[in-house]
């Protein structure tokens, strides 16, 4: 079996989209502005933000287009919401959501709940940012990243490769999510056989602590209870002076999230403008400031800095749609072996 195996030594080309003034916007985008103003409001589902962050989002977004659109941000459990949106779409019930800001949307793909948007062709976004026929990639997830507590692990002692995690000295010292997700993405980079072996050995030999929620994983590595964590980034914590860092691992695996406009969106023009704003430099800066989110290509972001000069495996959207379910089952099975 030959696995798709694409590693790109990324050449971090600044995006062609870098435009700051509304007058510099493509004609097609400028045409959206009066429509969006008419719509007057916009609801993005994907992340709850605190009031200050919402203000920052709203200001940056409206500044870009010279509009006064009332922006609402909300969040929750994406997988449940996605199937709910699909259901509502079929029943013709409005969800009140315009943009679904998420990673994987297969529940909605089949049902036609997503609006097809020609981001690259019509709105002149960078072609590398499109996700299928629907989405615009706004940031790159890095849920396969390794984190160390710098108080507990000296920099040169830290793992250099994923295989280093299997060093006996880390036995009982690693905390990981109870989720197949990091391993699915890693499969794209390492191949299925190697990933299965890595995970299996990690579970049986290293007896890692497994936690259901990412926030808990961050808390444990922060407190120094576990010197090593896998499955979460800590860029924003590090910025605040927390004793955590990402060690110099040879490989960075990324899988993306993006803006998807719903077919039932009441504010479609504003929704599209939001996606385009999110990939603009100001948008990227706002996203990173609030959430630590950014595209690996956006210059100067923490992720970009980390990615620079490193092997980066960028998991393609279609590959994920194709392989997710099958791989999830395999890795869940392995994860379940722990402790029983």
């Amino acid at each position: 079996m030959r696995l798709l195996f694409v590693i790109s030594l990324i050449a971090l080309v600044p995006l062609g989209q870098a435009v700051a003034q509304s007058s510099d916007l493509p004609e097609s985008v400028r045409a959206l502005i009066p429509l969006a103003e008419e719509e007057g409001a916009l609801h993005v589902y994907g992340a709850t933000l605190n009031p200050r962050q919402v203000r920052a989002f709203s200001k940056s977004f409206n500044d870009r287009y010279g509009t006064d659109i009332d922006l609402t941000m909300s969040g929750g459990l994406h997988s449940a919401k996605a199937s709910e949106v699909a259901m509502a779409h079929r029943a013709g019930v409005p969800t009140g959501i315009d943009v679904f800001w998420t990673g994987l949307i297969s529940a909605m793909v089949d049902t036609g709940a997503l609006m097809e948007v020609d981001w690259a062709g019509h709105y002149e976004a960078d072609a590398s940012l499109t996700m299928g026929k629907w989405g615009l990639r706004t940031h790159d997830g890095h849920q396969s990243m390794v984190t160390i507590n710098t108080g507990r692990v000296a920099a040169d002692d830290a793992p250099k490769t994923y295989m280093d995690l299997l060093d006996p000295k880390w036995r009982g010292r690693i905390v990981i999510p109870r989720s197949p997700y990091p391993w699915i993405a890693m499969t794209y980079a390492l191949g299925e056989q190697e990933t299965v072996e890595l995970l299996s050995r990690l579970i049986t030999e290293q007896e890692p602590k497994m936690l259901a929620r990412y926030a808990d994983i961050r808390a444990r590595v922060l407190s120094g209870e576990f010197p090593i964590a896998l499955g979460t980034d800590i860029f924003s914590l590090k910025k605040r002076g927390a004793p955590v860092d990402h060690p110099d691992i040879d490989l960075l695996v990324l899988s993306s999230s993006g803006a998807f406009v719903l077919a039932s969106a009441e504010h479609p023009a504003a929704a599209k403008l939001w996606g385009l704003w999110a990939v603009s430099p100001k948008g990227q800066a706002t996203l990173e400031e609030a959430r630590g989110y950014s595209l690996a290509e956006t210059p100067g972001t923490a992720l970009n800095t980390y990615a620079t000069g490193r092997r980066v495996a960028h998991v393609p959207f279609d590959w994920r749609l194709e392989n997710h379910d099958r791989l999830a089952e395999i890795y869940l099975e392995i994860l379940k072996r722990a402790g029983s």
């Binding site: 994406h78 997988s79 449940a80 199937s83 259901a212 402790g339």
Partner: peptide
């Protein structure tokens, strides 16, 4: 979720089934 003693309990099975980070519940 936070104590996470070794081994499953039913509620964890349920949570895992529904809260797939990626993909369908």
């Amino acid at each position: 979720a936070i104590i996470a003693p070794p081994g499953d309990v039913l509620v964890l099975t349920i949570y895992e089934a529904l809260n797939t980070v990626d993909g369908l519940p």
